[in-house]
């Protein structure tokens, strides 16, 4: 798909996307879509649901950019929006289907190591409220304050959930040896 949006600068790209330009939207998708998909996938745990999340994020992006104040990186802002949409999907119970992470990843990454497979399987077994904290903290690198805000819980609750998630993971991995 050709993208003839703007003069190439991020600011002009954002301005054109804000005005509803499909080319600018496509350019933003090509730049950020894959990373946002990975984040959504890790939160919702299923490929189709992750695609729905990314689809909704980009369909709503031109209007949402009206609220983007251009302080901080666009990539970080997009990730927070995506995380919120993915978490809303988890909460709403609107998920289309449950697919184990390892099945889908196996198709995409046949060379995944046995250790990673085991780790993935262990992550899969975590309930949503623990897995989302684990993904956001340990994989995406968010702080507890931000996770608390994203999930609508206290920082203390975020720490407790992470501890529980790690404890369950550790137990799962040790019992699997």
């Amino acid at each position: 798909m050709s993208t003839s949006a703007g003069n190439g600068s991020p600011a002009s790209l954002i301005a054109e996307a804000r005005a509803g330009s499909p080319d600018a939207l496509a350019a933003l998708y090509l730049e950020h879509g894959a990373a946002l998909f990975r984040l959504a996938y890790r939160v919702v745990g299923a490929r189709e649901d992750a695609e729905d999340v990314v689809h909704d994020v980009f369909v709503g992006l031109p209007e949402a950019l009206q609220r983007y104040e251009e302080r901080g990186s666009l990539a970080g802002w997009l990730k927070r929006v995506t995380a919120r949409v993915a978490l809303m999907r988890l909460r709403s119970g609107k998920r289309r289907r449950e697919v184990a992470l390892d099945n889908t990843v196996g198709q995409a990454e046949p060379a995944a190591t046995a250790e990673r497979d085991g780790l993935q399987a262990a992550v899969d077994t975590l309930p949503d409220h623990l897995r989302s904290v684990l993904v956001l903290k340990e994989i995406e690198g968010y702080g507890h304050a931000e996770i608390a805000e994203l999930l609508g819980i206290s920082e203390g609750a975020s720490r407790v959930r992470l501890t529980r998630a790690l404890k369950r993971l550790r137990h799962k991995l040790e019992s699997g040896r």
């Binding site: 496509a26 998909f37 949409v85 995944a112």
Partner: peptide, 27 residues
């Protein structure tokens, strides 16, 4: 832990939804 890539037609679906007038209010 690896994650898969999105479908190749996802961008087309996004643009088609926008062109059809669909809007999503993001948080």
């Amino acid at each position: 832990i690896p994650a898969p890539a999105p479908s190749k037609d996802l961008l087309e679906r996004i643009l088609a939804s926008r062109a059809a007038g669909r809007r999503v209010i993001l948080p």
